[in-house]
Structure formats: C-alpha cells, structure tokens
Amino acid sequence: MTTPSRAESALRVVIGTIATFVIGALLLVLTGHNPVFAFAAMFRGAFGSIVAFASTVDKAVPIGLCAIGISLAYRGGLWNIGAEGQFYFGAFAAAGFGLSLPENVPHALGIAGVVACGLAGGAAWAAIAAAAKVWLRVNEVLSTLMLNYVAILWVDYLVSGPWADPVTFSFPYSPELPDAARLPAPIAGIDLGAVITLLAAAALYAVDRGMRWGYELRVAGDAPRAAAYGGIRASAVTASALVAAGALAGLAGAIEVAGTTGRLQSGLSPGYGFIGILVAWLARSSPLGIIAGSVVYAGLLNGGFSLQVSGVPSAIGTVLQAVLLVCILTTFSLGRYRLRFGAAVGEAP
C-alpha cells in the first residue's frame, strides 16, 4: 500500500463526497423528490440552528467515542465490531448505579460514579472478547459481533422486566435517573460529553505521538513476532487496547443515559457502534478526522430525522452514511490501482 500525500488525500475525500451527493441526488430524483430541497432541509436539520447543532453534537459524542476506541484497537490489529454491545453494557452499568443511588448524594459523586460504571461496564464486556482472543484464540471480529446482541437483549430484558418503569408501563423504559446521576446541561454552550470526546481524541493523539504503550501496541498490531522479538507481550498489549476501546464505548453509553435520555431504554442506540466503525475507517486513524467524521455522520443522522416533515423518508440519512464511506474508500482504493499500473511503482520483491 502506498501512502498518498495530504493534498492527494483531501482531493480524494472531495471526489468521494461529490460522488455521494450525486448518488444521493439520483436516488432522490428517482423516487420523485427534489434533491436540492432535500439536501438543504437536511443541512438545516443538522446544522441550521443552535438547537439543531446541539442535537447533532449529542449524537456526535457517542459516535466519536466509539470510533476513537475502534481506531485504538485497530492500532493493535484488532477489530472491535462490538462497540454497540459495549455501549449498551456501559449504559446498563451506569443506569444500574444511578438507579440504586440513595437520596442526597453529592452531584459530583453521582457523576463520577456514572462515568466510572460506564467505563467499567464497557471494558468488562470487551474483556470477554479480549480474554477469548488471548487464551482461546477466538477471532475477535466474530466474538465482539455476537456479544453485541447479547448485551442489547440484556438491556431489553431489564427495561421490559425487572427495571421497567411502573409509570410508563407500556414502554420499555427504566425510571428516570435521579438528578445526582445526571450530567449537567451545557454550561455556556459547553457540553460535558463533547469535552470528554475531545479529551479522548487528544489521548489518542498522545498514544500515537509518543506513549510507550502506543508504540508497543503499533508494533504488536503490525507484526506480533517482531513484538516478541522486541520483548513486547503482544497479546497483553493488544488485549488491553480492546478493553480500552470497550471502556470508551461504555462511557458513551453512560453519557447517553446520564445526559441525553436520562433513563435506560430499549433501542438506546440507533447503531452508534456500527456508525463508529464507518467513521473510524473514514478518518484513517487520524483523531482530528474522527472528530470531523463523527460530526458529519451525526449530521446525516439528524438531518435525516428532520426530513420526515417534508415527506422524504428519513432513511436517506442512513443511505448517505454508507454511500459516503464506500465512495471515499473506493477513491482511495482506485488511487492505489493507478499507482500500481500507471507508474513503475510495484511492490518490492
């Protein structure tokens, strides 16, 4: 694989984005909608007002946290397809903590507990796959994938049974978390979840820039034998990265229940963990790219919702999410072809 220059990468992203718009417009026209109108409405719905933007940021936070974790695990050569399940398990742990809080607990303690439980819950869920990988050599793509649905069904069970809210009896909701366990509303426009996400991105940057753990992770991910040669315990390092990825996804789940919804509920995530995978790949491991990508993908999600009023099915947002990824990845991949067959740049023998 050749690494394209920064300008070349930017050009490819632009081409991929244009292609996405063209494909999206085509779909809209074919189904009898006005693409200009629809795209404009989507943009307004995602970024057109303070309220819209705030709602987009609310969705960008879980996407971003999941993507940062996925990207981190991938540095160690591990796929975390299980961010969705870790998100749910983190949300479960956080909600469990919040719901069992006695009265008159200080707010700071409540928030700290919720965050810690989210981290621990996600980490624990990922640790199952990590342990199976280290001791049984179970492929983590499949194990994390399978664990997703177990976690989702577990939460479904709780909110429709033992933790069901007696007030909203017919809905699969838990009771609301007490105030002490709720994240504060944005203060002066600063959203706590957004701050945490930016901190996580900064941490990812530090991992790349010079942390020894990050270095060992990259070596272990690239060449496990070289890691053994260099005295690195490859399986331990990569497993710790997978657990850390789970912790981040679990944190996203905690922020969701403690900040956005205020309760544990069925269908808590519209696929944040999966969208996170798309964003992590789109960003090609860059922390800044992940932040930008999660805002864009959250915008597509939000913009899609706001379209419903105008009669265009909201699923167009989901379609564009997938098409955008495929288009951009394809431009990069086709660029590789040009280099292979055009110039005399082959693989070294």
Partner: peptide, 15 residues
C-alpha cells in the same frame, strides 16, 4: 465493506 452494506441495506430498504 460488509458493515457499510449492512447500513446501506437498512437505509435503502427503509427509504
């Protein structure tokens, strides 16, 4: 690609 196609199929079928 597989995950992208999961998302794509879900979006396209709903749409």
């Amino acid at each position: 690609a597989g995950l992208a196609f999961t998302v794509l199929g879900r979006g396209l079928s709903s749409y």
